[in-house]
Simulated assay, not measured.
Amino acid sequence: MYNLLVVDDEFWMCAGLKKIIDRLDVPFTVTDSACDGRQALAKLEGGQFDAIITDINMPVMDGLEMMKEMRERQFKQPVIIVSAYHEFEYARTAMRLGAVDYLIKPVKNEELSAVLTNLQDLVSRRKEGPPAETETAADFTGLGGGVELVQTVLGTIERSYMEDLSLAILADQAGFNSSYLSRLFKIETGKGFVQYLREVRMKHACRMLKDTSLTNIEIAKQVGYWDEKHFRRTFKKDFGMTPGEYREKYQSKK
C-alpha cells in the first residue's frame, strides 16, 4: 500500500478524497493531510509519503510555490494537482514544474481511479529503480516531470513523422500508460496527438511540394501516408486545395 499526502485548504476536500480513495480498487491510502503548502513541506520533512495530491489555490503557500520549494529541497515524491477548469494555465505551469498528472474539479471517481492507476505504475517503477536502457526506450530514461516526457515525444514526432507512429506505441516505449501520456500531451500542446502528428506531416508535405519535383505519391509516402488518396483528402481538408493546386500556386511564385 502506498501513502498519500493530500494538500487542500478545504477540510471537506481532504476528507472526501480520503473516503473516495479508500473505496477505489487502488493500492493507495491517504495517511495525512495539510491545509497549505508550507504545512505540507513540514510534513514531508517528517513523514513517509509516496505521492502527493494538491490543490493549486491555497492561502499561505499555494500548490505552485510548494512544488518549487519541493524541487529546491529535492523532494522526489510525484505530485498530482487538482484545479478548476478555468485554472488551465496554472495546471500547465504545474506540469512544467514536474507534476505527473492533474484532476479537474469537481473530481470524478472514474478519473481519480485512472490517475491513481497511472500513479501506481510510476511509484512502483521508482521504488524498483530506473529500468535497464533498451534501444526503444533509451530516449525516455531519466525523465523528470511530465513536460519533459511530452518534449521528448515531440522530438520523436519531428524526427520520425514518416513512420507508423501512435500514442500507444510511444507510451509503451516510454513505459507509461497511453491515457496518461494523452492527458499530458493535450495540456502541454493544446492539441491531441493525432492532430499534432498530422500538422507536422502536412508541414513537411508543403515544403516538399514547393521545393522538390517529387510526385504526390512519393511525397505521401515520405510523410507517412501509404494511401495517396488519403493523403490528398487530408491535405485538401487542411488547406482547401489539392496538393497539385498547392504546388502550382506556390512554385509559380519562386
Results as ranks from 00 to 15, higher is better:
21 I>P: 07
85 Y>N: 11
238 D>E: 15
215 T>D: 04
115 V>Q: 03
51 A>C: 03
254 K>G: 15
162 M>V: 01
119 L>T: 11
113 S>N: 13
189 T>K: 10
245 E>K: 15
20 I>S: 02
52 I>C: 06
124 S>E: 13
60 V>Q: 14
253 K>Q: 14
37 G>E: 07
192 G>C: 03
209 L>R: 10
20 I>M: 10
40 A>W: 11
64 L>Q: 08
101 D>C: 08
241 M>A: 11
60 V>N: 13
210 K>A: 14
47 G>N: 00
124 S>A: 09
73 R>C: 00
219 I>T: 13
105 K>W: 05
68 K>S: 12
69 E>L: 05
131 P>T: 00
29 T>L: 12
94 A>N: 11
133 E>M: 08
18 K>G: 12
248 E>A: 12
84 A>E: 07
143 L>W: 03
207 R>W: 15
27 P>S: 10
4 L>I: 07
174 A>Y: 04
220 A>N: 04
167 L>M: 13
168 A>R: 14
68 K>A: 10
185 F>L: 09
131 P>Q: 07
91 A>V: 12
142 G>L: 09
112 L>S: 08
9 D>V: 03
43 K>D: 01
238 D>V: 13
240 G>A: 08
122 L>N: 02
25 D>M: 02
171 A>I: 01
224 G>N: 04
176 F>P: 03
93 T>H: 06
150 V>N: 11
164 D>G: 01
101 D>A: 00
166 S>R: 07
177 N>G: 03
123 V>F: 04
99 A>H: 00
223 V>Y: 03
217 I>R: 10
238 D>M: 14
189 T>W: 01
87 E>D: 14
156 T>G: 06
183 R>H: 12
191 K>F: 05
155 G>W: 01
245 E>D: 12
160 S>D: 15
205 A>N: 02
205 A>Q: 00
207 R>K: 15
135 E>F: 06
88 F>V: 10
81 I>T: 03
31 T>H: 05
188 E>L: 10
129 G>W: 00
42 A>T: 12
27 P>G: 03
165 L>K: 04
75 F>W: 08
155 G>A: 10
96 R>D: 13
223 V>S: 05
207 R>D: 13
98 G>S: 11
227 D>M: 04
33 S>L: 01
79 V>R: 08
172 D>G: 06
61 M>Q: 04
132 A>E: 13
241 M>P: 11
151 Q>H: 15
14 C>Y: 10
75 F>C: 01
200 V>K: 10
156 T>V: 13
41 L>T: 06
121 D>Q: 10
16 G>E: 02
201 R>Q: 05
123 V>W: 03
71 R>I: 06
147 V>F: 15
82 V>P: 01
195 Q>L: 04
161 Y>G: 04
2 Y>L: 08
57 N>L: 12
141 T>I: 12
85 Y>R: 11
103 L>V: 06
222 Q>C: 12
234 T>Y: 06
231 F>Y: 09
200 V>F: 00
148 E>L: 15
206 C>Q: 14
207 R>M: 14
184 L>W: 12
254 K>H: 15
78 P>V: 02
179 S>N: 14
130 P>H: 09
190 G>W: 00
96 R>G: 14
